[in-house]
Design a protein around this nucleic acid. Sequence first.
RNA 1: GCCCGCCUGAUGGAAUGGUAGACAUAGCGGACUUAAAAUCCGCAGCCCGCAAGGGCGUGGGGGUUCGAGUCCCCCGGCGGGCACCA
Length: 874
Amino acid sequence: MNDTSPAGAPAAARYDARSAEPRWQAAWEARGAFAVPDVPPPDARKYYVLEMFPYPSGKIHMGHVRNYTLGDVVARYKRARGHLVLHPMGWDAFGLPAENAARERGVHPAKWTYENIAAMRAELKRMGLSLDWSREFATCDPEYYGQQQRLFLDFWRAGLVERKESWVNWDPVDGTVLANEQVIDGRGWRSGAPVEKRQLSQWFLSITKYAPELLDALGTLDRWPERVKLMQANWIGRSEGARVRFALTEPVRDIREVEVFTTRPDTLFGMSFLAVAPEHPLAAAVAERNAGAAGFIAECRRMGTSEAAIEQAEKRGFDTGLRVAHPFVEGAGFPVWIANFVLMEYGTGAIFGCPSEDQRDLDFARKYGLRVLPVVLPTGADPAAHSIGDTAFTGDGTIFNSGFLDGLSTGDAKRAAIKALEERGAGDGVVNWRLRDWGVSRQRYWGCPIPVIHCEACGAQPVPANQLPVKLPDDVDFSRPGNPLDHHPTWKHVDCPSCGEPARRETDTCDTFVDSSWYFARFCSPRAAAPVTREAVDAWLPVDQYIGGIEHAILHLLYSRFFTRAMMATGHASVAEPFAGLFTQGMVTHESYRGADGRWLYPEEVERAAEGGAALHRETREPVTVGRVEAMSKSKRNTVDPGAIIERYGADTARWFILSDNPPERDMEWTESGVAGAHRFTQRLYRLVVGAVPGLPPPGTGAADATGAARRLRQAAHRSIAAVTEALETFAFNSAVARIHELANAIGDTEAAAADRGMASARREALEIATRLVAPMMPHLAEELWAMLRPGEAALVAELPWLEADPALLATETVTLAVQVLGKLRATIEVPAGADEATILAQAEAEENVRRAIDGRPVRKRIHVPGRVVNFVV
RNA sequence: GCCCGCCUGAUGGAAUGGUAGACAUAGCGGACUUAAAAUCCGCAGCCCGCAAGGGCGUGGGGGUUCGAGUCCCCCGGCGGGCACCA
């Protein structure tokens, strides 16, 4: 910014964040203001604040700035409230982008990652976060992932690790396993080749063993957003239903029956077909002798493994020609289809289709001309007239067309059907879970090696503890496709720890979600020679306030909840729930711009006359099309570099704008005018203090007996303490900002009367209050102001306790009541705080406007809500 | 497709079921200045009216209530997640 002071003006006329911020950061660091011990002293009230650690992509982005600002406000506030605050930072450093960089630019993933970390650490430090940097680590440090390997082996011994087959996206041209995001419209992102599903033997963590507990314990998480708990509950997906066995009329190979899971056994009589997933063993058996089936299955394989892609694809099926018997209907045979919308991972991988009461089944039946027999009659409907068109009836009602179930409610019919199935040996009532075990194997280099050795004779063997960590080899070749660990010349060749014969190292590495499933525990004792130090995790866990993006609402948080339980089962922790409080922030968005040639433009390339006004290219002066406001992304170039913002305005301005713009759980829009406005406020506060200091009395004198305007200023200041405190407690940071604006306005209004003695004392008090209320949000500015208000004082604002409002100054003498007639506002009245109801009602009814609205009609009811409203019903 | 959210002036938003629009941004008018920036003061939901006042108004439609931005139902738009992006 080119806001140079006019020549001759005192240098202090403007706040220079660029020189002040590093100065205060150095002061905090010199005093070790934010460092805490691994094991807090027994009398300490601990508080663990954690923000989701960043992936080291190279530069911090506004989402990080928002996340870490929110956490820092909480950390600084809780520290002021007398807590010993653990507030660490680290790096989620394994993952695909490092490998992509290696393949595209020939940089080693480790070099790329550690250089990115160094750059991002420097940027974070400039934000003035109250972090204990001595605890920093990266998940790609062998000290970290080595401990993770110990955990993995402990879990294995505890029966929480399994080896199973599962499906992956395979790029047949690149010869590589693809992540879902690398599959675009069913093709590999680099090769463009149609993707195939392939079955691999992989490592799984047995999260399903904890499914009931993970579901039930959601009820104890009272400081989690309801929607996150709902999403997790749906994801875990407990459902009660029946497993039904359908006998094939003639066996295929050795398969004699098909087992189906259904939540709607009440609709069994409405069945018109049975469908199995393309990966179902029956489908494979049919394909052996039926080329059409084999072709259909091959087509389904090209859909990839993403559930979204599968469910959005057009529903298609293949009639196998097989038939199954119905458990309740003598002699009826129903066709068996292979269908692309049946998921092998859910239930038994097979369904029975009742088109009348299920929309997907109905769409399928209409497409292939299968029977649609209604079996649930909506309450009050005429059985003769009820028919199904294009919409299935999925609600409750009375069963009909269903033999022995006729006349029962859907609920009773479910129970009756299950009972009948059990009697006939054709099925059972069961509880089914949607949650699947966690496949952690990745066929990639840049991850934590899974510490296993495969031996022909002994099978899979754990790597002995004295050989941990299993380190990644440095000399890897990214010029070939596939997993560099797999085609490394020597790395995988080891001797079996059990029999000593030549064996093969596991070349799969861990899903990076494993790395982030226990980092919060590691932060408690980051240099421990074991995964954790028990005294440290027992003292610090759970995290009291966890803050991060809503995009992690399910997977990361659920995996962490599972991991903590697994750590408890293996003696590494004493709590089951890692995060007592959770706050999910919204994204940072920005307008997007396109130039005349259709290319995306960066915000700094665009000049706007005014908000909503015409936009021009800063250099070419060509018109610019202003696009939608959307999440900042490199591809749309609608990003703002936090480094540049901090360089220009200072960290406090960026922090203040981020906090002031909107509620933190919502998406915020980054606007240039908004930052400029935030920056103006930093200058305004500074000016208020600089201007006032020469006329202020010494600290702590004469405010108590203030009267008139001075007392009103004191009331405003103390009400600000109460309001800002309340706002900080509830994450209403934008409201806290508004209240501080109001206080600054109130102080500004008293400038003319500053010479008055009582007022001068009140102004000192109000300025000190404003300074300390602003401190969690703009910590550097607060220190600067405090140093001017209290020169020579030893303590920094960062070390001061939080303020308490004087209750005497919070009380109000009169209240304003809204007076309504039939719910419409007609007047407001001013009444003394303790006035009795009869007086208030009389005063309200006497109001000119109220009398006119009542218009002589009899008043049927008088409603008085104390302190709020009076309503006359006529 | 399925699960979960969100929608209030020009803009971001405020509002224990009780005065809708606090606070801020942009805008307009004024003061200061040779001028600009900065700063300070004032105006401001929409419509009718000189005013007093009245009508309408929180994505659309319906409902519950003395009273609905807030609770319920339906619809629309936008966003997050869908198990190998992190």
